[in-house]
Amino acid sequence: SEEELIEKAEKLRKEFEFIWNGIRFIIRENADEIRRFEELLKE
């Protein structure tokens, strides 16, 4: 039914948001290391 689809979509959206926030947190935490690594690659 349509309601089930909406519920599934909402659940997926929440899971995606949770994963995305996790990725963003990891990137933020490691931003300095990532930048340093990029500098090494440029040399």
Rank of each mutant, 00 (worst) to 15 (best):
S1A: 09
S1N: 10
S1K: 03
S1T: 08
S1V: 08
E2C: 14
E2P: 09
E2T: 09
E2K: 09
E2R: 13
E3T: 06
E3G: 05
E3L: 10
E3A: 11
E3F: 11
E3P: 05
E3Q: 10
E3C: 15
E3W: 11
E3N: 05
E4R: 07
E4G: 10
E4H: 06
E4Y: 05
E4I: 11
E4T: 08
E4K: 06
L5S: 04
L5N: 03
L5I: 09
L5H: 04
L5P: 05
I6N: 05
I6A: 08
E7D: 04
E7A: 05
E7C: 14
E7P: 05
K8E: 11
K8A: 11
K8I: 10
A9G: 05
A9T: 11
A9E: 08
A9K: 04
A9V: 10
A9Y: 12
E10D: 08
E10C: 14
K11R: 02
K11V: 10
K11F: 12
K11A: 09
K11N: 04
L12N: 02
L12M: 05
L12G: 03
L12W: 11
R13A: 09
R13I: 12
R13V: 10
R13D: 05
R13G: 11
K14M: 07
K14W: 13
K14A: 06
K14Q: 08
K14E: 05
E15N: 05
E15A: 14
E15I: 15
E15T: 14
E15L: 15
E15W: 15
F16G: 02
F16H: 01
E17W: 14
E17Y: 07
F18P: 00
F18I: 08
F18N: 04
F18W: 14
F18M: 04
F18E: 04
I19V: 07
I19F: 11
I19Q: 00
I19P: 00
I19S: 01
I19A: 00
W20G: 00
W20F: 03
W20P: 00
W20T: 00
N21Q: 07
N21H: 03
N21W: 11
N21P: 04
N21C: 15
N21F: 14
N21R: 08
G22A: 14
G22C: 15
I23Q: 00
I23S: 00
I23T: 00
I23F: 03
I23M: 00
R24A: 13
R24Q: 11
F25A: 14
F25V: 05
F25G: 03
F25H: 07
F25N: 06
I26Y: 01
I27S: 01
I27Y: 04
I27F: 10
I27Q: 01
I27T: 01
R28L: 10
R28Q: 10
R28A: 10
R28G: 12
E29K: 03
E29M: 14
E29Y: 12
E29T: 08
E29F: 14
N30R: 13
N30D: 02
N30W: 15
N30V: 15
A31W: 13
A31C: 15
A31E: 04
A31Q: 04
D32F: 08
D32T: 04
D32Y: 08
D32A: 12
E33C: 15
E33N: 13
E33L: 15
E33F: 15
E33T: 13
I34F: 03
I34R: 02
I34V: 05
I34H: 01
I34G: 06
I34P: 01
I34Y: 05
R35D: 06
R35V: 11
R35G: 03
R35K: 11
R36V: 04
R36A: 07
R36N: 06
R36L: 11
R36G: 02
F37W: 07
F37M: 03
F37P: 01
F37R: 01
F37V: 02
F37S: 00
F37C: 12
E38K: 07
E38A: 13
E38H: 07
E38N: 03
E38I: 15
E38F: 15
E39Y: 04
E39V: 04
E39A: 06
E39W: 07
E39S: 06
E39C: 03
L40K: 05
L40Y: 07
L41C: 15
L41Y: 07
L41S: 02
L41W: 11
L41G: 01
K42Y: 13
K42P: 02
K42F: 12
K42A: 09
K42C: 15
K42W: 13
E43N: 12
E43R: 07
E43T: 06
E43D: 10
E43C: 13
E43A: 11
E43M: 13
E43H: 10
E43Y: 10
